[in-house]
Design a protein around this nucleic acid. Structure first.
Lengths: 226, 226
DNA sequence: TGTGTTGGTGTATTTGCTACACTAACCAAT
DNA sequence: ATTGGTTAGTGTAGCAAATACACCAACACA
């Protein structure tokens, strides 16, 4: 048995990783968390957070662990996106990557460099640097999925603090969909779902009329609408 | 190096497989192709077709190859469904399975037993035998996905021959959704999509009025509607 | 007190979905 | 030739959902 390669099989096995596309809304744009690689290949390049699967965890647990290690946050809505498997997607060895996407509000999160990342930072999705591996493709797929799910689920609330104004919520939709929405129709539609309640408090920011704040009535993860 | 285990790695690697849920409409019910296992574990039990990933192919190619080997058909619409990864889902070793679903018209397909399957056969989805591994869970997820995609895509045509009548198409929808649809509304809706053209021919079967036959105008794989 | 800024509200129109019943064309049997 | 049985084929009216659209309210600041 090779001294440094103690895990042996009768047939070749690929390595398995997870990569996570973590979205936030910051500075009025949709942003993605990237880490800068400290090790080859693609050293110094930006990449998605992620890493190798341990033998005692499933893929979702792996994605959660990697996210925790590299960003310090936990318990996010995490959804499996797609599994990438081009034979040459990693120059080191054959690597299969199960990808996940997640959402968070940016101000609760202070990305910190972890063992495998010398730096972690937010990038607007419409201005990403060149990414390592096939990660640009993964980000694009995640963006499409996010936009598609907006209207069928309650994921948008994951991007906002516990209480928020309807204008903030509308801004999230407009940022992700990249189009302006009608204020009256938007509010009508959201309130008709009966998933929000007024907190009774007002948001007093800036030199204008204060806005009612709302919270989600049933804060259980994510629901599919209709 | 162990004689029978020549593939060695510095970290443990899981095995990677694909499993395919192949649907058809037969005998007026939605059916799934299963194979009977010849080898342990779960010997003699029914299971989904599928098998181990080769190092020179991606997951979709693997699924296509396994489908070809075990059913003799090729070139189907194949969509990645989900990747299953519970650590104990295979008693032999750690196995990650990327699952796919596919549709075919049953009369072009004559399942034949392959190397790893002593028998292959169609089963109505509402009367499946006990399945090996976590395959029952996989089938259920595929069924949900199929029903959800019916209204947003053109997958239903994959279950029909090149030319077909609107009544045949409606029967496909009714079988998958498991509910009766209104004939006039169904036809109105389908024709309004402008994806069908009349062939000019008629289907003369049985002792009743012949039905116009249609074909898909643009027979490129699968489209998402709207 | 005036100006600038965002919050908050209703109605009319259009569009899409639903419910619903009869005639047409063919075959088979008499 | 007529009748009965079977599936093919068609339109309209009512309802619900989505859209388009403009003004006043409340506050901060100068």
């Amino acid at each position: 048995m090779p001294v440094n390669q103690p895990y042996c099989y009768t047939h070749p096995h690929p390595a398995v990783t997870t990569d996570i596309v973590l979205f936030t809304i910051r500075e009025e744009s949709l942003q993605v968390l990237l880490i800068q690689r400290t090790n080859p290949p693609f050293r110094q390049m930006w990449a998605l957070p992620g890493g190798f699967l341990n033998m005692d965890e499933n893929l979702e647990q792996c994605a959660n662990r990697e996210l925790l290690e590299e960003t310090g946050i936990d318990g996010l809505y995490l959804e499996q996106l797609y599994t990438f498997s081009a034979p040459d997607r990693d120059p080191r060895e054959r690597v299969i990557s199960a990808t996940y996407f997640a959402l968070t509000q940016s101000d609760t999160l202070h990305p910190k460099a972890g063992s495998d990342a010398q730096e972690a930072a937010w990038f607007p999705i419409s201005g990403l640097p060149d990414l390592a591996f096939d990660h640009a493709e993964i980000v694009e797929l995640a963006r499409q999925r996010l936009a598609a799910k907006l209207n069928y689920s309650t994921i948008a609330f994951q991007l906002l603090p516990e209480t928020f104004t309807l204008s903030q919520l509308q801004a999230v939709y407009e940022t992700i969909l990249d189009e302006k929405l009608d204020k009256r129709n938007f509010r009508k539609g959201v309130l008709a779902r009966n998933i929000l309640m007024e907190t009774g408090d007002y948001s007093r920011t800036g030199n204008h009329r204060p806005a009612k704040t709302y919270r989600v009535i049933n804060p259980t993860r994510v629901e599919i609408i209709k």
